[in-house]
Write a protein that binds this DNA or RNA. Structure first.
Lengths: 205, 205, 205, 205
DNA sequence: CATGAATGAGCCTTCATTCAT
DNA sequence: CATGAATGAAGGCTCATTCAT
């Protein structure tokens, strides 16, 4: 068995164990038992328990980065909204296709400690920056309302994160297209009917 | 010093320590040192470390429940949107006024283990149910667009959670009114300008 | 049992175990078993295995320093040679009265690692400096032959060290007075009879 | 590469590693890395880590034995003192010419464990016996003062050991001839000037 | 012979919890 | 009620040794 295969085998076992028991609940013994290797072998491939967890998280983070494409203007065959929607669709697919790892990112990696918090925040920084770029593009092009791009980016990020968190932890099954459509509709049009918007805009502000 | 005061003193110390170091990073020794009590005294007030953490989380959860009011129709002085906005405002205030405990709920309590995950999910179930009730009310009354209330409730929840998470962990300062206004605007009207909505609605769907 | 007593009890057990098995052969489990305490108790008194070993060695080193008195001139009731002899006698007594700890210093602490080697060398530096001071005093006063004080100090140190090493490791019994007398005689007069010294001095140099 | 060459190559690497890190600090991995061989190869040449260390120590011990010649009387061209001095000179040269191995014998091999301690003591037994033989010869021939030959042999051994230990561990440079001369002078004549000897001999004993 | 991936016994250390005072 | 010394189960990591290729 070559090195990469063995490494992948350990990573796979670790994913299952971390997803099932959380970071602290997972013992190295659990991982090696699941991977059917000796304890020492584990340490031939990863310097310590923390490291393999980091590899798992980083790997997933990279896969997310890999499916995200910055929205560009001017391509008539791919309007910006569609591009955004495709990004959402791909991220959702990524998470639902690998629910254990998604759970690790969205639940187990949260609040591990200060150092890991910073790693997560840096990742979400990247995502937020991407979203903010898109928003600014839209604002400049006139089809996105002006407003605080940072806060709105956090909101958009939070919507997707929460959806994935709930689905993955509850093992809910929702058709992906419905999910994406609902999210996009909420983001694009808001919650309210057009008539209500007019009424509300007169009263609430 | 009476029992309740002592108990509160320990809870306060625990809040600070958990917020600073996370659940596993916090040692009972840290808490008693901060509370200036003996180790044994801790166990006179709480059966174990897990329990005090639960009390902290539950307390915050109750405070959140305490500021949430179901939206009702038919009160002309308090239109539903305003009621919702007030709910958001109060939750945001609660979190930002007690950032350490908010961090505990939003970060440290996440992914602790299966049992605690269920506790969190149950709490979010309640919140989601509340939001869903509101949505359904709005749909029935004709001012909220029809659509998957569950998914949209998750989205709304996620927006607020992420905002609080980011602000609390990054120690960011954003005026609360701006925050709430931005969120409400996004929720009510969506991201897009009215013209764009018409264009998009023709093409993306 | 008060803290100092408990600490002493652990130190005593550690002395016996280290002396019997050497640093690496001694497990913390052995020490706590011998001290009849739980493993955790050990760590209430010493940060780690290395530390208690260091305390043992440092303690013995201090006791040695404690019995050494710099040789002074001009006291007719205590000629320099007698002062030196008393130093030797006291060091020998110290070692033979606490053979286990002497073995730890002379055997177990040797070659532990670079850091500990430096600690030992620093100690022997002090001893050598003391001896050198005495030698220089004697040279200046005209009763010690001129010569390399450093090298001669090492030699004198080595004589005592080796004697203690051999006696302690072999559990030999030699009357202390005989020991000291033989050493002093060797140091003072050399190995050779007076006639031989004259012959040798003509030929060997 | 023939077996002996390969074996020598491993021994050389082991010498460097043991001298640098001590017995326990040296990992078999370090040795094979330095020897540029595979881990398994190591075990084709030596049954275990302890064994190669033993080979190193034994080899050095044999080299020491090899340069030591029992002192004989009756050869007018080689007076006994000169023979002894030559022995010292050769041992000193051996150590200083191969400082790493000397450090292994004098520092790393000390206090390893009971079994190895006995091996060392056996070696020093041999040396002591040799010295004692010489002393007895001298006593019988009338040029060495009577006295405890065992203790005096330990002293002479200790002098040379300590000198080598200090020089090797501190990486000091002292001209070998000076070293040997100082040692011989100390042994032959003692520390004191002739006048002082007379005074002392009246008072100190 | 050589390789180096795999093994697993061993050991130090942590820390939540208990209980005698 | 309060104390804090004592407990000991638990788990991460190392590294000498083996063996299939």
């Amino acid at each position: 068995m070559d090195r990469e295969t063995r490494r992948a085998q350990i990573l796979e076992a670790a994913t299952a164990v971390f997803a099932e028991k959380g970071y602290h609940g997972a013992r190295v013994d659990d991982i090696v038992a699941r991977a059917q290797i000796a304890k020492g072998t584990f340490y031939l491939y990863f310097p310590d328990k923390r490291a393999i967890f980091g590899v798992l998280v980083d790997g997933f983070v990279e896969r997310i980065h890999g499916v995200l494409e910055p929205v560009v203007l001017g391509d008539p065959s791919r309007p910006p909204v569609l591009q955004a929607q495709e990004n959402v669709r791909r991220v959702v697919s990524l998470c639902l296709d690998d629910a254990p790892t998604a759970k690790i990112l969205l639940s187990d990696a949260v609040g591990l400690d200060g150092a890991f918090d910073r790693r997560l925040l840096a990742f979400y920084d990247d995502l937020t920056a991407l979203v903010e770029d898109g928003l600014r593009l839209g604002v400049d092009a006139g089809f996105v309302r002006p407003g605080d791009t940072r806060v709105r980016a956090f909101c958009l990020l939070g919507m997707v994160k929460e959806l994935m968190y709930q689905l993955v932890l509850r093992r809910l099954e929702v058709p992906r297209e419905d999910l994406v459509a609902t999210v996009m509709s909420l983001v694009l049009d808001g919650l309210f009917t057009e008539e209500a918007q007019h009424l509300v805009s007169q009263r609430a502000r």
